[in-house]
Simulated assay, not measured.
Amino acid sequence: MALFRRSTPEPAPSLAGQPDAEDKPDRLRRHASEAVTTINRASGELPTYSCVQALHLVDLLTEVIDLSDTRALDIHAAITVRRTLSEYLPDTIAAFRKIPATARHEARPSGRTPVTALEESLSAMQQAARETLLAAQNHDVDALMTQGAFLTTKFSRSDLDL
């Protein structure tokens, strides 16, 4: 009767909790370098303030990446860094560059100009980067506090000692 059984493929091993190759620090640093190159190439078309904002954003995200020198990044932090550097920032710059230079300062029906929209988008990404950096730093502080509490409990005298 084995002739009529359908073979079922083995389920793929679960990769939950394992970092994606794209989220490893060396790859994230490469994304940061590529983002700086993108910003520099677009600098002639971007408003000066927006270039500064974009470079500051990369600096913030690089600080997050640098935290991985002591311990692996939280998966949420790694994904935020990767996607901001490889998708959100380059896509925002590319979208702005597609707008004719003559239309970049013209108010749209919303009352905002493309320059204003670019600055707001970069500000939003900066805020997310700051929050990610703070969360990663707080995770390190929380880990240190937990370790300190453990060591205090472990090596302090117990009330049961005679």
Rank of each mutant, 00 (worst) to 15 (best):
P13Y: 07
T146I: 01
A124K: 13
L3D: 06
H76D: 12
V52P: 10
A103I: 07
D59L: 00
S156I: 00
E131A: 09
A143D: 07
A32F: 10
L60F: 00
V52H: 08
A35M: 01
A129D: 02
F4I: 06
M1D: 09
T116F: 00
T70K: 04
E120P: 05
A21V: 01
A54C: 04
H139N: 07
L15G: 10
N138D: 00
Q126T: 03
L122K: 01
D142R: 11
M125Q: 15
V52D: 04
A128S: 13
A129S: 10
V115S: 15
G148I: 04
D66Y: 00
H56T: 15
L3R: 02
I99F: 06
F155A: 09
A35Y: 01
T48I: 10
Y49P: 03
L151Y: 08
Q147R: 12
A12W: 12
I65W: 05
E131T: 10
P13D: 12
D66H: 01
V141D: 07
S50D: 00
S43Y: 00
M145L: 09
P114R: 03
E120T: 09
T116R: 05
I93C: 07
E63Y: 12
V141G: 00
T116M: 02
H76R: 14
R41H: 15
R130P: 07
A135C: 01
D74M: 12
L89T: 08
L134W: 12
T132I: 10
A2P: 03
L61Q: 08
L134N: 08
I79Q: 12
E120G: 08
L122W: 05
Q18N: 15
H139R: 11
P90K: 10
T62N: 15
I93Y: 06
T62R: 14
L57F: 02
R157L: 10
F4E: 08
S123N: 03
